[in-house]
Amino acid sequence: MVQPGPAGDDPIILVENLEHTYGNFKAVDGISFAVKRGEIFSFLGPNGAGKSTAINILITLLTIQKGRAVVAGYDVATEPQRVRESIGIVFQDITLDRDMTVWEQLEFHGRLYDMPVKDRRDRIEELLKLVQLEAKRNELTKRLSGGMKRRLEIARGLMTRPTVLFLDEPTIGLDPQTRMRMWEYIKGVNREGTTIFLTTHYMDEADQLSDRISIIDHGKIIISGTSGELKNTLGRDLIHLETDNNEKAITLLEHLPSVREITVRDTLIVLMVNEDGTRVLPGIIDTLRDAGIEISSINLKKPSMDDVFVFYTGKDIRDEGQGPARPHFLRAGGK
């Protein structure tokens, strides 16, 4: 599913057979992927899937145990220092000093990365403008709203003009409006040429923000591709049915050539169809009616990222951790 980059174009992040174990727990279980220069790449997965562990290895906060990871042309195992100098990071939790001003946080970062005075002062002005915090430059961080703090962190991550910007759950805890605005900032930064690697457990974030997505669960990458490619793996349309005799309905519908796969969630039958659902639907209804099966509800929709996620991980991200092996619930409607 992953398309290799154009010939001669080395990936900006290359990970091969990465494994990481805490005690007996394998948090990352042999993942491999490549991120192309200039793209927005997402790790989509529930909490505890291994996203943060993987990102922490890439940003050199965790020592690599097994496998290989190259970031911005440098191996994290042998040249962590170079990796550090080439990347920007926005951590999952707010990592700001409440008692420093907006300007001081950026100045501190510039100094940490040994930027020359003139360069870092100019850069601070540029970034304050970019994230619209110019008026807040002398404000203590504790007086900023959640969205402003996030913007400040993004500005900080960009201070050194990094080749790659890592964003670990960039919009966690933000209100919907602020999230939209954060996406705009992130897209803007990406348009300027910064490659973006982000982790998220929000479907819409992965769907709307990323060029390519890897769904990760239990430390493994389950599937990768563009949002469109992932959705296409579920067929063209999804049909949700509720009947008075699901078992019988399934045995009948299984044999229809247009039906690609059937799954059951509670009382719902979910059909993945290869053709235009509106054309398949009448045939399905006829088949069931002829067999004397009563249809109590019917719903036709395009596969959403939620459907993709539920299909491949076997769980709804909202009930994470307790899902049975097969999907049990699919929210109707989607996006």
């Binding site: 940003i59 906060l61 220092q81 990071i89 000093d97 940490l112």
Partner: peptide
């Protein structure tokens, strides 16, 4: 305090 609520990760991930 930095470790729990502040700048420690920012510092540890820097080249310093």
């Amino acid at each position: 305090f930095d470790k729990n609520w502040g700048l420690m990760r920012e510092i540890l991930a820097s080249p310093v």
